[in-house]
Design a protein around this nucleic acid. Sequence first.
DNA 1: GGGGCATT
Length: 827
Amino acid sequence: MENESLYVTGSLIAIFFQNPSNFYKVMLIGVEETNTPYEELEIVVTGSFGDMIEGETYQFIGHLVDHPKYGKQFQVETYKKIQPTTENGLVEYLSSDKFPGIGHKTAEKIVETFGDKVIEIIMNEADRLFEVDGITKKRQQVLHEGVRENYGMEQVIVSLHDYGFGSQLSMAIYQQYKGETLELIQENPYRLCEDIEGIGFKKADQLAENIGIEATSSSRIQAAIQFELLQGSLNEGNTYLEAEMLLEQTIQLLETSRPVEITPNLVADEIIQLVDAGKIQQEGTKLFENSLYFAEFGIATSIKRLLSRKKRIKYDEAAIDKIIAQLEKQNKMNYGDSQILALKEAIRSPLFVLTGGPGTGKTTVINGIVSLFAGLNDLSLDINEYHNEVFPILLAAPTGRAAKRMNETTGLPSSTIHRLLGLNAGEKINAEEIEKLEGGLLIVDEMSMVDTWLANLLLKAIPTNMQVIFVGDKDQLPSVGPGQVLHDFLQVDEIPSCELTDIYRQGNGSTIISLAHGIKNGKLPADLTKNQPDRSFFQCQAVQIEPIIRQIVTKAQAKGFTAQDIQVLAPMYRGVAGIDNINNMMQEIFNANPNGTRKEVKWNDKVYRIGDKVLQLVNEPELNVFNGDMGVITGIIFAKDSDNKVDELVISFDQNEVTYGRNEWSKITLAYCCSIHKSQGSEFRMVIIPMVNQYARMLQRNLLYTGITRSKELLIMLGEASAFIRATDNEATNRLTYLLPRISEALELAPHIYIESNDTEEVTQKNPNTYQQVVNETLERTNEQDVLSPVTEDYVLTETLVTQGIISPMIGMTEGVTPYDFEPIPH
DNA sequence: GGGGCATT
């Protein structure tokens, strides 16, 4: 925690809400003492809690928040039960009905004997109770067990600290196992790495070693296999692992955790045991973690169910044409041919997949489908007309921001998939228990971000007679979780789909579009490093990234570009060419404080000033602000001037303004430069993308594609050409999944000719010394059509040319970008 | 080494 810790001590009056599947609770507390500025007698606290007893006194550590709907609340990080401290309090406590058989007199005697140490003694040296007159074996037991139950959590937490777990982890462990914690851990310490996020195999193994579990014991090896199977899948986004790979990686995990040799046979035997016991699943030489195996199975079953709906969708061709013509007239536009095809096929399919890059009009088609569906079914799109019935068109997306955007473009209600399904984040849920949705049409946008687990839950919730449209860009970044559901669906012939390719947003002269198009097919144009009207390239090394961006941005600023127009997109935070470093530099250009006379606030390593461009990092649906939204700081209120007596930032996002107290500043960060991941779903006039080999593992094709396609007008690339090539060659989307054969199986088709997805060209390990050769090879591979002009060495911008002022960084952007009127600098 | 989802 960054600030002094705030606490509230008080007694639990009531539990307003508790989520039975996790430990989230909302409770009302009668305030006895606090160091917060809160002055009311009662306060609402929220957070994760174990068993809470009404009437008991607790101390909560955390911070005050201002909830937009529920007002001031105390958000709890940790808490503990407070023992009664005064002798009177202790007597009251011990004579209460928690301890049957102990009256006031007895309680007084006990407290007289042991004083304020009484709780500790009852808990740890219960036999000493016999020193007190009138304590029978039975009473001693009642006291011992009662106190243990009440103070059990603290006891357990203390023991967990002894095991080497920090307070956060200890809380998480206690919340999982509660009173049984210590027994369960003793019995099988490896359950920790299965059940608790943040505890890996090695940590659990350390504990196991202390407890005396042998290095070659079955429980240890099985735990390692299961851990590696899930982690191995998660790390690479795969839904299964090849047995050989699992064997190898498991041995490595076991041997690095403890220096004892483990033979392959030993591990292989345990794999067989696990398969026999149904704890992992096997398909030929492929091994699956259970939840991923069943999720793929479930998806396939749902696809089959949806495709074979009984009630046929029969819409009159003429009626469809009529409505489309009406829409065109009404909106004063014409659909493209491929858009019309997509509309017609989508409206007649039980399940339809629509894909396409930025600017191809996916949103236009979504709107068209909505209107078409409403028109054909004679439905009103005015939600106010639906009082008792549900609105028949459901819109959803995997992120809050995409959902908000859908709402803005359609004017209809939209939600995250999680909200739609009533899921809690991170919660494991049985797909069979999920409630069916109600309505006639469901459209899901940004489907590329949906992983195998969520796709299964979503599909399970769709009733058979609901039409479904999945929309997304298959070439964007894959989902955070395992799988590549959209990508796989598009390869199933039986699932109707359409790819939009015509670009409506940019002119045909745009070389950014052709560059993006080339990259998604694994090709870089020969003129990558040559200037075009809408893009340019600077060759430089990692250490030069920052100074060169500084020059580019300074010049662009002089041409009238604002911080909102220019977006630097980088793959990672750390390092000289990392986001953090670039952000600080950009802040000095756009919003400096040279004399130190401007208002500013410090937070961790950052400084915020009025005018700073910031990025929202969490969803705040009540405020209509979502993860990935960008805003500007419009006010700084120092603690002495604020109502809440804390430093506050006022931030303006599009239309609405929010105020964040210091304890909420972790919800934002500087946004001059942001990660390519975070930029998904946004577009900017000018995009600057650095790529250097230092970004190593982040150099992936779809990452570069996503970054480049964020640009609406101008694109500036800089760094090492070899890094751009590496990224283009590295097709990381191709994850190992078994969804295609699973769907074929479900649809009872002849087995697909199943192509191993990692079976791509040999592009992996190339000697960096042969860099020029790689460049040449890649350029040679380039399709003739994409070659706009041959490489001419004189035009390659180098750092020297720029720093010496020989070339303006804006060179090349002189034609066809009339509004900004760049001056060509002769050289 | 980057990434999202929630509850009164």
